[in-house]
Nucleic acid binder design. Structure first.
Lengths: 110, 110
DNA sequence: TCAATAGTTCAATAAATCTTGAACTAAGGA
DNA sequence: TCCTTAGTTCAAGATTTATTGAACTATTGA
């Protein structure tokens, strides 16, 4: 089983910005960036229910922001940093830098 | 009559990204940046109906991306570049650079 | 083979978003 | 004053988004 990813030429700026324009997904992206290693879905438990995290991860994948590799029963999720840096130079860096200082989403604040 | 703008500390990254994550609004922002001077609403006619442009401009203003000054029957719209550059360094530049190369929204493509 | 684990998919619902046309407000000019 | 111009607001409808729980698939380990 393999999950569908957009090709670089199918990634649009509007879709990327729209996908990043959500506190939960920003937190996921910030976590992926901070950790620097592939993470599985369970690592994002704090950001919502299993179902909901799956939904947000699908959004990020479909926008071209993350890569999801199937590994057994797990999914290994990484940022598509090279693709994004090529398509939209500086964008991911500035978003991540800004997200670092800002608040985490609701679920993790309680 | 004066339109409400968020204070700098009320501007959030998620709201800004979400507001930028729309082709029409990206085109408006790119136009504002390219022109460099205050523009009134009518200058965005090509991007949609009068009502619809008003809606998108309100979105941008409420997200803290634009400033709208009332001048007679006109509104003079500018980018809040200083505020955005302070809050989210490099973000606006990378978005605008990426938007420059990408497609214009539907209305202007016909 | 059986049970547990990781995650997805589906159906339902609530809420937000986008778009439109009609009606409205406010200012400016004749 | 009257008309025009610029833009907003409102109501309505269509579409999309976010969230949830239940059911499902697939892999792993006992």
């Amino acid at each position: 089983m393999n999950l569908p990813h957009p090709l670089p030429e199918q990634i649009t700026l509007a879709n990327v910005l729209s996908a990043l324009g959500d506190p939960t997904r920003l937190a996921i992206v910030a976590t992926l960036n901070r950790t620097g290693t592939p993470l599985n879905c369970g690592r994002f438990n704090e950001f919502g229910s299993k179902t909901n995290v799956s939904y947000h991860l699908a959004k990020l994948r479909e926008a071209g922001i993350t890569n999801t590799e199937v590994a057994g029963t797990s999914r290994l999720i990484t940022l598509r940093r090279a693709d994004l840096d090529t398509l939209f130079p500086g964008l991911l860096d500035s978003v991540i830098a800004a997200a670092r200082d800002s608040a985490a989403p609701a679920e993790s604040r309680k």
